[in-house]
């Protein structure tokens, strides 16, 4: 037993160190963003000055990122949910292959995808310079997450029988889709949506090549700030980013945590 307790303490200690490795820099950067002078420490006083500077200098990037991520969500919903439904219904080699293809933009580095988009559509002036060029990249990259998330839920329920049940009660195709399929994959759609918005908000690999000086997103602005401005401003900017993204991540955590299975007693009436 003593050996087991020692093992437990060792494992716990190790896990706490890992946890510190992940969380300490987050806290440090949040503090730095609120500290008057990071070099001389917190005793130099707390201030919102840096956050203010970020707001005046970079608020467009924040709005653009929110806008793009919402459009990206709409796009992945319209394209991804029906696609996931089809893939769940048809379990053939062909649908396997299509799924494999759809996931490719995640496997292929964003840098390569962005270059490919530029060499193909770079000449299309208005499109190249508008934020919809970035949007296309984001939809490409996040679509697999929506499809996977919805597909996972649809594969876990007996979709075929539920649809047959609805059909036996007179429901046509559209009624089945909206009354039965969509409500029953709500959790997958929600998890997928949070993932899509979070990823779109933070996407940098592709966006750095796709953006123009007039279409800077938040992560592009972050990279700018890290490279050229003082640590406090970079930190304040990161703080703003955290404030936007951490609630999404917490919601995602809460949503994907497995619920305890309820026990159903076999109670019968006479």
């Amino acid at each position: 037993m003593a050996e087991r307790r020692l093992l437990f303490s060792l494992q716990l200690g190790f896990t706490l160190v890992v946890c510190a490795f992940l969380i300490v820099p987050v806290i440090l950067s949040m503090l730095a963003g609120l500290t008057a002078n990071y070099l001389s420490g917190v005793q130099s006083g707390l201030t919102l000055r840096w956050v203010g500077e970020v707001w005046s200098g970079y608020r467009e990037t924040i709005f653009l990122s929110i806008g793009i991520s919402l459009c990206c969500l709409a796009g992945t919903l319209v394209l991804g949910v029906p696609a996931a439904y089809v893939l769940a219904k048809r379990q053939s080699a062909l649908s396997r292959a299509i799924e494999e293809l759809l996931v490719m933009p995640v496997a292929v580095p964003g840098l390569a995808t962005a270059l490919a988009l530029i060499v193909t559509y770079g000449a299309a002036g208005a499109f190249r310079t508008s934020w919809s060029f970035i949007l296309v990249g984001h939809v490409l990259f996040t679509l697999p997450f929506m499809v996977r998330s919805v597909l996972a839920v649809l594969s876990a329920i007996d979709l075929k029988t539920l649809e047959e049940g609805a059909a036996s009660l007179g429901a046509g195709f559209a009624q089945r889709f909206f009354h039965i399929v969509l409500p029953n994959c709500r959790s997958g759609i929600l998890a997928g949506s949070l993932m899509v918005v979070t990823l779109s908000m933070g996407e940098f690999n592709m966006t750095w090549l796709l953006h123009t000086p007039l279409t800077k997103t938040l992560p592009v602005g972050l990279a700018d700030a890290y490279a050229s401005l003082r640590l406090e401003i970079g930190s304040a900017y990161t703080l703003v980013f955290f404030l936007m993204i951490v609630p999404l991540l917490l919601a995602l955590q809460a949503l994907t945590r497995p619920r305890p299975v309820k026990f159903v007693a076999e109670e019968e009436q006479p």
Partner: peptide, 20 residues
């Protein structure tokens, strides 16, 4: 005619009750 146009009632082995 597909099932939705036949006006029959059906009870499934797994019941197919709508969880939503």
């Amino acid at each position: 005619l597909p099932i939705e146009a036949r006006h029959v009632g059906m009870v499934f082995q797994s019941y197919a009750l709508f969880p939503n």
